[in-house]
Each structure stands twice: as C-alpha cells, then as structure tokens.
Design a protein around this nucleic acid. Sequence first.
DNA 1: CTGTTAGCGCATTCAT
DNA 2: ATGAATGCGCTAACAG
Lengths: 354, 354
Amino acid sequence: MTVTLADVAARARVSPATVSRVLNGNYPVAAATRDRVLRAVAELDYVLNGPASSLAAATSDLVGILVNDIADPFFGIMAGAVQSAIGDAEGRAGGEKMAVVCNTGGSPERELTYLTLLQRQRAAAVVLTGGAVEDPAHCEAMASKLRRLADGGTKIVLLGRPPLPDDADQDSVLAALMFDNRGGARRLTEHLLKLGHRRIGYVAGPADRTTTRHRLEGHRAALAAAGLDPVDELRTVHGPYDRASGYESTAELLRRDPELTAVLAANDTVALGACAALREKGLRIPEDVSVAGFDDLPFSIDAVPALTTVRLPLQEAGARAGRLATCGEEPPEGGVATVGGELMARASTAPPRA
Amino acid sequence: MTVTLADVAARARVSPATVSRVLNGNYPVAAATRDRVLRAVAELDYVLNGPASSLAAATSDLVGILVNDIADPFFGIMAGAVQSAIGDAEGRAGGEKMAVVCNTGGSPERELTYLTLLQRQRAAAVVLTGGAVEDPAHCEAMASKLRRLADGGTKIVLLGRPPLPDDADQDSVLAALMFDNRGGARRLTEHLLKLGHRRIGYVAGPADRTTTRHRLEGHRAALAAAGLDPVDELRTVHGPYDRASGYESTAELLRRDPELTAVLAANDTVALGACAALREKGLRIPEDVSVAGFDDLPFSIDAVPALTTVRLPLQEAGARAGRLATCGEEPPEGGVATVGGELMARASTAPPRA
DNA sequence: CTGTTAGCGCATTCAT
DNA sequence: ATGAATGCGCTAACAG
C-alpha cells in the first residue's frame, strides 16, 4: 500500500542505500543516478518515513521551542525568529529541520512533560524561552531532565532565561542568551526618577519567575541609588504577565497610595491594563500618572499615549538562538551571553504634577 | 548506553511485550506485574523511543498546527486553545499527544513543506488555521497533499478556513470550522452606515486570501444594500495583515479621498496602524474619522479610543478544533460549521461630523 | 561511486 | 495474563 524506499530503489534500478544517499544528500552520488532516483521519487510520490529514519539514524530533525504563552507576542516573535533561523540554516531540499513550538502555559509540569516528549522523539535541539520558575524542586527536575536530553545528543539553548544555577548542570546547555532585565528596569526607573517621580508603584510579574525577579531587582537598585526605600512592599504588587493583572494591580496600588505619580509595569501588556485602570479612575496619562512597560512589543508605540518601555531585541536574539541550536553559529564565551535592552522614552512618561 | 524497553523488561523480570503493554495501557495486565514494570521504568529512568514506537505502530502522537504568523495573537490564541484541548483529551499517563505549531509565515511553499514534514512523521492529525491562499495551482497542490495525508491516516481539521472547493477533496478533511467573516464585516459596515457614514475607506488584507475576500464581500454587500457603489476601488487598499499596512494604506486612502469619515480595517492590528496614521494627520478618532477593526484581540479594548470590532470566538473554536482532531467530538453535519462573530460597538466609531 | 548486510527499538501477532 | 517471534522502513558500516 504505502510506498517505501525499496519501491523507489526498484523503480530507479538502484539499491536502497543509494536512494537513502540521494535523499539525505550527505554522500557523493553520480548525477545521472541521482536524477533517476529523484524521478522515481516524484513518480511514486514517495515520502520518507520519518520514524523509521529517526530510528535508524538515532536522531531526528525535530527542534522543540518551549514557550510560556503562545498567545503572547513576546513569545511569538521569538519563536518565529527561531523557526526562521532553523529553516534558513538548511541548504539541501529534504534536509529541513522541523521547528515545533510547545506551549507550556507557564506550568512547570507541562514544561517537563514537553521535554520528555521531545526526548522521546530524540529531538535534535530544544530552545527554552522566557523566564524560569525558581522553585528548587522544579529546578532540580529540570536540570536532570536537561542533562539527560543533552546526553542523548539534543542541543539545548536557553533564550531569555539565565543559565542553570549549578555549573555542572549548565554544562549540558550549549548556550544561554539572556536579556538584561536588571539593567533595563534600572534605566527605566532612573528615567522616572530623573523626571522627578518619587512615588512609583511597581506591578511585578509572578513572584517565582527569574524575569520577574531580575526586573524587580533593577527597579529597586535604581531606587536605592536614589536614596529611596528599595524594598517598599507597599508599592509592589505581583500578578501574572497579562492585561488583567495590570488592571487589578494598579487599582490596588492606587488604593494603597492615592498619591502615586508613576506606575512601572512588568511588561507592555501589563502596562496596557494599568493604563485602563488609571483612565477609569479619571487619571490622565502622563499628566496625572506616568506609565511605563517593558519589551516594546509592536502595539506599544500605538498605545495612547505611546508607551515608554525597554526594547528587547526579540527577533535578533531568537534568530541567534536558532542558529546556535542548529550549530550555525559558535556559542559565546562561557556559553552565556547577555543582550541589552534599549530605553524607549515616549509620551506615557512625563514629570509629575507639581 | 541508552536504556531500552528490553532493559526494563529484564529488570522487571517480564517479557518486553508485557512492558510495552503496560506502557500503552491498552491491554489487560495484572496489577502486580504492572507495578513491577512501572517501578523498573522509574528506577531506570526509561523514556520510550518515539521513532521506534511510531515505526512499529505505524502512527505517531504528533499533532501539527499550521499558522500563518506565530507572532500574531490571532493565531497564538487559536493555537494555544487547540493545544490545550489536545492535551486535555488524553487520560492515561504517557498517552499524551504532542501538539506542535508550525509557522508558515503565510508562504504557500512553507505550508506545503510543513505538511510534507508532518506526513513524514506520520502525524496523527493536522489543524490548518487561518485563511487559505486562493491561487489555483496552490489549491490543487494542497488538495492532493491533504488527500495523501488523509490516506495515511492523518486527521485533517480546518480552522478559520473554508472547505476545499472540490467536494471530492473536502472528503479528506474531517471538519472545517469557518468564521463568519462575511456576516461580521457586513454588520460592521451596517453599523457605520447607520451612524451616517457614506465615505468609508477599507484597508483590506492580502488580495489572494479567503479571509480577505470574505470580509471584503461582506463590506460590499452592506454598501450595495445601502445603495452605495459596492466596488468602489478608490476606497479599497490591499496590504498585509500588519500594523504597517494599516498605517500606509490609511495614508493612501486619505490621499485619494481627504473627506473620508470612516476607515474599516482588515483586522485589529491593521486598525491600530490606521489610527496612528490618522492621528498623525491631526485627525481625531472618532470625531473626525471613525475606525473599526476585526477579531477583537485582547489589546483592542485598551486602544484609545476603545476599538469597535467584531469578536471572533478564537478560543472556543480552537478548543473545538482540537477535540475534533483527537476525535473527542463528533464532526458537524456535512463536516462544515460556521461560527459567528459578535459586533462590539465601542468608542472608535461615532456619527461623522456634520 | 554503488551494492550487501545488519540491526535501530518497539508493537504485535500467535502461542501458552 | 504473559512470552516468543517477526517485521515496521530506514541508515550505516563494510565491501567492492
């Protein structure tokens, strides 16, 4: 019923091995033979059996991309860039790697599950995007899972996530590309301080995420440098990285300190929710309250007023991660690189009212 | 080196067949034996070899989700919903299907390439999301590719895409869930007409997409019903489904007719670009020009003014597609179902100036 | 440059 | 309820 490589071989009057060789293109084959084989492939409408091929070769052309939230452009942009880089990397027809994105929904369990599934498929590489959960038990589980994946030949790349705490574990990852969340948040806060703000509320992400912690640390470092109380719990509220959290947390912040003159959000999406809450209270942005986000997602420039934020090179970093995963680029010194963010000062921030 | 099923069998003092049976859970096994096997699996840290398993069983647990643009939440939301539905569908541990999303970037070639890759993997199901390209050659190529996939046992579900033109081809797809793009666009235009608008510009999507065509048809149907020129080419501009297109096309529309009182955009993202262009020209929304989008993505309600649009049940439709793909739900009558959109009249539309 | 040979690791008959 | 035997379709030595 189904056409196999042997059928193609018979039709082209060559051995199965030869067919395999032209299909994989990694071995010299006479041009005439190759043509004959290719013609047979076309005539029989043959499609390679992936599982059989992976079984025999002990590797597959699958590359997994793990994301926390596929509906969030922050991840979508990175995933798209990784995928493009992986597709472009291959020259020969048929030699394409298949990049597949897996949506963990931010759940540690699903993250582990997907890694197991990818391990099962003998994935060629795995790119883990976004902040990691900092729970010790989960960290350990992840580290050992990654080590086993690496032992099985899977390349591991971290994108927007810090290297594993234990150096021995980190050895199993090819490279970690992290964003300068601390620096970005610090510059954002400094920008606000320079404008004259002293009562700044902070809508943070989920408490147990590295991204959340780093951004918060940067924010607090700037406050401390300005002689303000760096750990003013009154002015920090945690919540998910979504619009609703921005809305609710901002309302809460306002309740705690009605005199707030600025709200810093964990990311742009949260900032949008913050704006909505502020506006609903009759507060103008930036005249009454300044607002800033993080990431500079495409919609941020179209917010009204345009959102002050920190631009992260998601596209470039994603592409680089893709090249690293397919060995199209040398890993950075020590396997870790930090890519910076750029402060985009726009209309949503201004000096506080007098 | 790598632990195989045979190793587990040896450790558990049973035959490989028994191990296979407890792992797949589709065969009676004594509780005591099962425990012994599971313990051995845990102790040896065994992970099933996917390719080998797929080869022997002639099927895999991969489900492909094709999207036009993974960075666009329109697709992200659907993909996430499909993925959740697929994950939830499975009861037994280890029996998880692996949903993988493939980013075609809107390119017909990449769409075909991914389908071949999925065919190669003997995917259990494929969900094709978003509008289709209407080029006849590509349609034919797609139809034959889908038929071969279906012949190989892969379930095909169309999500937000019309059934294949040829009934014989459509037989190979399990179900087509389409959005009522025509009806939604028509209601949107009627809303504008009722407000008193007569000079309405339309920023359409790429010319060769079904979604584009249907939305445009709905718009024109409403115009015709109101006695206006339905095919006023002067007031229609095509472009990609992105912000830049909305920006540029709106500028063009304004150039053609500076007296425009409303701009209808192909989707919400495009509408945001349209707003930016309008604002830059010093035009107020909605006092000078009304604007409306389509889809009701999460950010639309936070636009200023809040965007009038048509809400599509992306989440629900995605979940349903996922259930259909995993046979967790009966296909609709005739294999085709249309899900409606809801007009969300918000602040970005108002009567034209007098 | 091409053919021959031997598994890759598992699911599945068929026995028992 | 369990074991033994067979082959899924392909790649990778090894010859020639």
